[in-house]
Design a binder for these strands. Structure first.
Lengths: 244, 244
DNA sequence: AATAACCTTTGATCTATGTCAAGTAAGGTT
DNA sequence: AACCTTACTTGACATAGATCAAAGGTTATT
């Protein structure tokens, strides 16, 4: 199952720069850039550098200097914290339109790896910060995005702290579907560009538990496992699995 | 064990208003207000309404219209999500200087209850938002605070998703101590204005597990249980309990 | 000072989920 | 097509932490 926002790299990449970037940008309306007027977008455009990255690559590490920040324009990422003994918590998955580096912090607060081939619209953090400093609308937009992330993070704390395994899986499927829906439009088939282990590491479970629950939901005809994702057969029962 | 930032209400409350609020404010340097220059602080001061609230009171509910937002000036709060079946996740505890309503969202994203008697410096959300809109330094400060909260939230996800009970308790004690230290200065004795059940609901554990672990750490002479809080006897071993 | 209400601690047992260990399927490569 | 690698699934068993139950302590109330 392939998700096609027509590949932004197609009409963008030219010695790492591009003209026409923002106006042709498929994710513009979802991204922080939506805050900018024509004048400001020109300034941003000058700073932007398109990049293509292949699947399954680490692209930044928690604690390292945050030289560059970016909007994800196509493909998917996972954002994660790794403990020294190998345990891993996936903080979230990024989809097209998501901005990485919202906090403008001088070091990255999490590590990032690509799940799929990916294109990004990258900026020098300092340069971007300065633009933000003199562009109140941009900070406001960053703040709104960060606040939204914060409330999602808090919702996820409830999931991790207080919900049982089946609820976690059900809620994950629903929230991931909702996130994709906003970008790609409604669909009963939910693409899962991440593996079972990634889902487990996001939900604080083991791969076996995730697998068993997905199998069970399949047996109960609530979902149908299809290659690359899954189809939601019974929305109502899926929702009932997790009390509000 | 009583924490005394001298009570801000002393020289503040006068028909719900006050002169001299901000200059006398004990938490000003920690709070979002620190972003403001003399001119701006005057504008803010006009909008501010001091309030006193007694211990163990719910003061706002998730989902309700966010009419007012505030800086906590003394006392402690807990911020929580409640599920319909009674399960509860405490998102965090607020200490003097913390701002409640950082996101400027039109509805509250979590519920809040007082742990102790409390004083707050409250604002009408709309009024405050408008001030923020024309005061870039203020939004910037809100954004920094929100970003900081976001990274704390992500750290807590790791705790909830991937750490064992003893690590959770140890990390909680260290992070709570660190938070208080910034406000009240260094101290080996850590006040715990919240109960064991609150700690459990913050760490995704049961009260029995929290109690057992605190008892064990006491037996091992890592901490000493004292009324209203506890004393850290062996910082090194406490830190060793949780791998980075 | 005695009583009551509420926390907290401790012990005994249970269980949801983790761990360990095979299998099976799906791509990718030669 | 056969092989190999990697991901997923399933089963059997183990365990960290939950649940149930009963004391102890503290603080507030009369």
């Amino acid at each position: 199952m392939t998700l096609t926002l027509p590949d932004i790299a197609d009409y963008c990449v030219e010695a790492g720069r591009c003209k026409q970037v923002c106006n042709g940008c498929k994710v513009r309306l979802f991204a922080v850039c939506a805050a900018l007027d024509d004048h400001e977008i020109k300034a941003l455009e000058k700073m932007a550098r398109q990049k293509t990255l292949s699947a399954r690559q680490p692209i930044m590490f928690a604690g390292e200097p945050a030289d560059s920040i970016f909007t994800l324009t196509s493909g998917f990422l996972r954002l994660q914290h790794d403990l020294s003994d190998g345990r891993r918590q996936i903080i979230g998955f990024a989809a097209p339109g998501d901005f990485i580096g919202l906090g403008l912090n001088s070091t990255y607060v999490y590590s990032v790896e690509t799940l799929t081939d990916v294109t990004v619209c990258g900026f020098d953090r300092i340069e971007f910060s300065m633009l933000a400093h003199r562009t109140p609308g941009l900070i406001e937009r960053l703040h709104r995005s960060a606040s939204h992330e914060l409330s999602l993070a808090q919702e996820h704390m409830v999931l991790l702290g207080r919900r049982r395994a089946e609820e976690r899986v059900a809620l994950f499927l629903m929230s991931w579907r909702k996130k994709l829906q906003r970008i790609f439009g409604p669909s009963v088939t939910v693409p899962l560009p991440m593996g079972r282990q990634d889902i487990a590491d996001h939900l604080g479970l083991t791969i076996e538990t995730v697998s068993r629950i997905i199998s069970r939901l399949g047996r109960e005809k609530i979902i149908l496992d299809v290659p690359g994702g899954l189809r939601v057969l019974d929305d109502g029962r899926l929702m009932q699995l997790a009390p509000a």
